[in-house]
Design a protein around this nucleic acid. Sequence first.
DNA 1: TATTTTAGTGCAATCGATTACATGTAGTTT
DNA 2: AAACTACATGTAATCGATTGCACTAAAATA
Lengths: 348, 348
Amino acid sequence: MKDNGKVTIYDISKRLNVSAATVSRALNNNPKISSKTRELVFTTAKEMNYKQNRLAQALKSGKSKNVGVIVPYINRNFFSSIIRGIEEELGPHGYHVIICQTHEQMDTEMEQINTLLNTQVDGIFMSISKSTTNIDHFTKVLQEGKFLIFFDRKLDVPGVSSVVIDDFKAGYMSTAHLISQGCKRIAHFSGDLNLEIYKNRHDGYISALENHGLKPDPRYIFTTLSNVESGAAAARKMWELKEKPDAVFSASDYTALGAVQELKKQGVRIPEDFCISGFSNEPFTQYMELPMSSIDQTPLRMGQIAAQVFLEQVDSDQELSIEKKVVLSPELMVRKSSNRSLAELKVQ
Amino acid sequence: MKDNGKVTIYDISKRLNVSAATVSRALNNNPKISSKTRELVFTTAKEMNYKQNRLAQALKSGKSKNVGVIVPYINRNFFSSIIRGIEEELGPHGYHVIICQTHEQMDTEMEQINTLLNTQVDGIFMSISKSTTNIDHFTKVLQEGKFLIFFDRKLDVPGVSSVVIDDFKAGYMSTAHLISQGCKRIAHFSGDLNLEIYKNRHDGYISALENHGLKPDPRYIFTTLSNVESGAAAARKMWELKEKPDAVFSASDYTALGAVQELKKQGVRIPEDFCISGFSNEPFTQYMELPMSSIDQTPLRMGQIAAQVFLEQVDSDQELSIEKKVVLSPELMVRKSSNRSLAELKVQ
DNA sequence: TATTTTAGTGCAATCGATTACATGTAGTTT
DNA sequence: AAACTACATGTAATCGATTGCACTAAAATA
């Protein structure tokens, strides 16, 4: 039981009195092998329950057919959906997906990259952690001749492809939608504006206001963390303003949820008195009693496309200097929390 | 750039005019190596930016330090949390986690197992798909000398360890809780009773009823799928009964949610007229306007423990016949949907 | 001083599969 | 029948790291 019953091409070759090379060629459908031997090899391989050793193959070929995916946390719907997309796209091509978490720590991120490189992955997909500033560990990946692909959260690194959504557009769409509902004083719950994604959402928000003749008001912009408490706190502060906003575009569903809860406590009617729109289309947004409008980042697609970009690069056997930047279009999911005209709009 | 700049122990050995064996021993802290050489090797290894090739190591040792995790879908909170638990527990021990999805198909499950075995994983963690009946592919894993560990959904296979929650207890707890709220006619939305987990939840429900002097009524038991629509449909049927139930213990949060939505439409007051309790503690349950009671299956812990069981087995270098069955205790999360006495109970 | 011990290295095989090159054997051509 | 072409297969090196066994030189013992 402990001897694993491992069958190798040598075992097959002995049984058939041919060389291991012949067996290998037969199994790989090398045209130089006669069809008789080929079939003979195939059938005996099946009989002996032969399994190719991908490790040996990988060592020889230099291709492990494994890719790494590094995300802050795996059990966040957004990330696990991306992983699912990658897995489903790459699986049929014989690739396996190795997952790693950074917990938003840059040093963990660096470690993960190192061990993935040791493991001889053929490529690495990643969403950088919030605390990442340095890019040395990324360039190292390229130097080792591996592919690197960023999704959602990226930094500009030469030679690295990326797949992101158009956060600016998402911010713009959300805000424009709120305006279309008659809102005039639209607040914004932003994340850390040093991060590209939040900066872009913010800029889209500003741009939409301006394009519709509304003046951005810095007092209406609150910096929040992506959780319920932070949203509730921001909502409380917001409601202390003399001139209260009549809507908020939140860069996070969780913050938006916190705001909903807080405002309801204060007796605010949503969407009649106040409209609200979140970000990420977390599953709970559609299950809330008052379903919440949000931005769908199409994570499954994002994963699939990232995988496709990887496959393209692997196939085109050229030098590694390929660099592809894909920007996906976000989808605005209009739900009750910001919908004053249910009859007129397509509602989810 | 394409030559990968790969540094091997041979490169180091040439530079230092020693044999590769010496380098290998030095790097592995073999005591037979003099401390001078050892340090020399270490520093030059660092200088030359040497990275060990885990593939080669794996091939030589027969241990890849990779494990496979097979789940129906990765982007389900329950499963991704389990994966997170496994990853966090195994990562520090140098293991990588390879993930696979079955989409609930037995044939995909079999394929995944095969390719994982080819990849020479050291063990496989899995939750079997709903359509799995055959166990041949599981015994094959054991025959190859690899460890197999089931979590949550299992079949009885000799030699396979498992980590599950006590579904019977969960069903019992939920039902007993509903009874404690004064409910007398408690319905049950069950999943496919051919599956062990649903059977156990159902049995716990029956047992709780009987132990509290209530007669189980087959008309109160509805077989549902784990989605909102199925829950709504079941609720509708349930509400057509002449003697309407006053509570339901649902084996799925989604079904419970469907029921909540349907019953509210019909003007039923929850929890005053009707109590409801779900299963899995999906994130949305606590974010609903009417937060829903549910059973927490402690997936993170489940993953951690599964990983610990694996590590134990790997460490104890004995024969493979170790078989450990861990049963975790579920946690009842009492929330508003089934709480008629908010003041008295600890509410989440 | 002769002999045994021991610390430190090297040699070469090994893990399993792949592949350039060499070899052999029909079958074809002249 | 000699010469050559194709086709089929074998030989052996290779990927990178590990490790049992052999070996040398220095240290310890007699």
